[in-house]
Simulated scan of single mutants.
Amino acid sequence: MANLIPVAKTVGVNRLVPTISIPYPLGDPATSREEQFKLRYHRVGVALDALTSEIEEPQVFKVKI
């Protein structure tokens, strides 16, 4: 999971899951607790799927906005 995808690519990260922002990578304090839970649950689920996926080259996994 990374905020700065281009930087992560340059250091050789194979599996990339975009996060929200630098100060709040897995949340948005402007939203309700329920929305934050959904957002975090989705991102962590994508990250777990990324860890179990077989890849041949570096890949950025898609997340809901």
Rank of each mutant, 00 (worst) to 15 (best):
43 R>E: 03
17 V>F: 12
38 K>V: 05
18 P>Y: 13
6 P>Y: 13
37 F>T: 10
40 R>S: 14
7 V>S: 00
11 V>Y: 14
56 E>L: 09
57 E>R: 11
9 K>G: 00
23 P>D: 08
31 T>D: 08
47 A>N: 01
24 Y>E: 11
41 Y>Q: 14
34 E>A: 11
33 R>K: 14
51 L>R: 06
32 S>R: 08
1 M>E: 02
33 R>I: 11
59 Q>I: 11
32 S>V: 03
45 G>V: 05
47 A>H: 00
3 N>S: 10
12 G>T: 04
34 E>P: 00
18 P>C: 11
42 H>I: 09
9 K>Y: 00
50 A>S: 12
30 A>I: 01
38 K>C: 00
55 I>H: 05
62 K>T: 15
45 G>E: 10
30 A>M: 07
16 L>F: 10
52 T>H: 12
14 N>E: 14
40 R>A: 15
20 I>Q: 12
27 G>I: 03
47 A>Q: 03
27 G>F: 09
40 R>T: 15
13 V>R: 05
39 L>D: 03
5 I>G: 07
44 V>M: 13
35 E>T: 12
45 G>S: 15
63 V>W: 04
43 R>A: 12
5 I>K: 13
27 G>L: 11
65 I>R: 15
34 E>Y: 11
47 A>K: 00
56 E>K: 14
19 T>W: 01
31 T>F: 06
17 V>N: 04
43 R>T: 13
46 V>G: 07
9 K>P: 01
31 T>C: 01
49 D>I: 04
26 L>K: 00
9 K>M: 08
46 V>P: 05
19 T>A: 14
30 A>F: 03
20 I>L: 14
54 E>F: 00
20 I>G: 06
51 L>S: 06
13 V>A: 15
13 V>S: 07
49 D>P: 00
24 Y>R: 05
19 T>H: 01
13 V>N: 02
29 P>D: 04
47 A>M: 14
63 V>C: 13
7 V>N: 00
55 I>Q: 08
3 N>K: 06
